[in-house]
Simulated assay, not measured.
Amino acid sequence: MRFYMNNDRGFTLVEVLASLVILSIVLTSFTVVFANTNRLAVSNNEKLVVINLADAYLERVKANPSEFITPFPPTIQNASKGKVQSSFEMNSKKYKVTIKISQTTDEFNKLSLLNVVVTVNSETSKHKSSVEGYVPYD
């Protein structure tokens, strides 16, 4: 047993300092990676909120077009080229919702459609999403 423990000196100060420097470099790199991952996750969450909010507003226009389009159905003189803007707050962040409606007619099938473009801007960040859909009218 004594054969294995013949060195009782321990570690020198230089060895301890070198190991602390190496350990701190490794831990600092992990901290930077975790901080960047957290920042990216928050940014992606904001993007998902903007995309889903735009989709939800487009579905609201499809479900009840008379809420957003006045008069409904639009007349030829009106041409329905208005922009409906509203502000929406979710998770203590404000979003600006813009609904742009333009009238189109399909010459081949004689269908009358309203082209609806919903754009959502985040007021706190630079995230923006836009979706487009069509609403039929007679």
Rank of each mutant, 00 (worst) to 15 (best):
Y95E: 02
E67P: 00
Y57V: 00
D138L: 10
L113R: 14
F34D: 09
V16Q: 00
V120S: 03
E46L: 11
D55G: 15
D106K: 08
A41L: 09
E59D: 13
L114Q: 01
T28E: 04
P74S: 05
P65Q: 05
A41V: 10
N36I: 13
T98R: 10
V84T: 14
N115L: 06
V14C: 11
T37P: 08
Y4L: 14
S125Y: 13
E123W: 03
Y4P: 12
A54K: 00
L27E: 03
P73R: 11
S19A: 12
T37I: 12
F108Q: 14
F108A: 13
R2E: 09
L111P: 04
I25N: 05
A35E: 07
K81P: 03
L53W: 03
S19F: 02
E67R: 11
S29Y: 02
L40R: 14
V33G: 06
P136F: 04
A79W: 06
T12M: 06
S125P: 03
A63I: 13
V16I: 09
V84P: 00
V26R: 00
E123R: 15
H127N: 07
Q85H: 06
V97K: 05
N91S: 14
V61K: 01
F88R: 13
V117C: 06
K126H: 12
I25S: 07
A79T: 15
A56L: 12
V33A: 12
A54W: 00
Q77N: 08
N91W: 09
I22M: 07
K96V: 01
V26N: 06
Y134W: 10
A56F: 07
V42P: 04
D138I: 11
N7A: 09
G82K: 06
V120A: 01
H127V: 05
F3C: 14
V32N: 10
Q77S: 07
L27Q: 04
L48V: 08
N6A: 12
T98Q: 04
L113D: 08
S86F: 02
S92T: 10
K81D: 08
N45D: 10
K83D: 04
M1E: 14
L27N: 09
V118M: 01
S122D: 11
N45I: 07
I25L: 15
I101M: 05
V49Y: 06
T98Y: 00
G133D: 05
K62Y: 07
M5A: 11
N78W: 02
N109W: 08
T28F: 09
M1W: 10
F30C: 13
D55Y: 05
A56T: 08
E15K: 01
N6M: 14
L20D: 01
I76S: 09
V117F: 02
N52V: 09
N52H: 13
G10R: 07
V61W: 01
E15N: 05
Y95H: 10
F30D: 04
N115W: 02
L114V: 01
V131K: 00
N78G: 03
